[in-house]
Design a protein around this nucleic acid. Structure first.
Lengths: 131, 131
DNA sequence: GAAAGTAGTTTCCTTTAAGAAACTATCTAA
DNA sequence: TTAGATAGTTTCTTAAAGGAAACTACTTTC
């Protein structure tokens, strides 16, 4: 809990109290961060979204594109993304079946966030290398 | 690897080739994301930065503020953040010792990123609840 | 001299994330 | 009829993250 310091008229500290105002604001912020990180954290989700931002992809294409991922992880991550309405899965009744994955419009809104993360990461990398 | 489709003058597909252009661009993007996520991922780092964005804090204060964290994790995460020049640790020669943690100027630059994550997270939460 | 506060560290344990390999089921082309 | 491609699932195993509790070492206050 953040502390709020109370001063008197002479600007002398008279008390420290838990700052519920800041705390409420801060914990709302943290909840929001947590909600987003649930979707962004882990080794693969951002890469999958990144790959899909280039257009529709089939399962096997993603398996090739997203370097290093295995079928199990890909399948699990795609399910998670679908559950969160970020990715749309379409099955075509061809033989053998074709399944296409694409970003939903909502999934597209993540690109801004990812962009902001990437931008900071790029600056950070520069900084580390020029040390 | 993304695929680039080549069309002839009649706009008929004549070939599909691996798109190294997109791939190079994309993988640079991914590296940047990865660099940033190294710092942002995990259960605690963003919360610690969030707490420190309200001002300097001492170890025990952080232990109370960052709900649920234990001393071991806090100590480890603070070291990581210090190593990355995001947090500054100052020891005062009082008895018992006082140690203060604060965001560096560079650490402050993360607030924008975290803000963008939080904003998306807040919208996401609304969306989930209004379903 | 015991209790409580400072700032941690150490040890042991559990949980979660992730990966490798084998397997299912269906279909096509050689 | 056998190999290869589609889109996965299942099982087994390892690696990494995280947590609880006890412990260090020092000092002040009761």
């Amino acid at each position: 809990m953040p502390i709020r310091v109370i001063y008197d008229a002479m600007n002398k500290k008279i008390a420290e109290v838990p700052d519920h105002r800041d705390h409420a604001q801060c914990s709302q912020h943290m909840t929001a961060v947590h909600d987003a990180m649930d979707i962004l954290s882990g080794k693969w989700k951002i890469m999958i979204i990144g790959s899909l931002s280039f257009g529709k992809k089939r399962f096997m294409e993603l398996l090739r594109d997203v370097t290093g991922i295995g079928a199990k992880m890909l399948s699990k991550e795609l399910k998670d993304l679908e559950d969160n309405d970020l990715v749309k899965r379409t099955v075509y009744d061809t033989k053998p079946v074709t399944v296409e994955y694409e970003l939903t419009e909502y999934g597209g809104t993540l690109q801004e966030v990812i962009g902001s993360i990437a931008q900071w990461g790029a600056e950070h990398r520069k900084r580390i290398f020029n040390k």
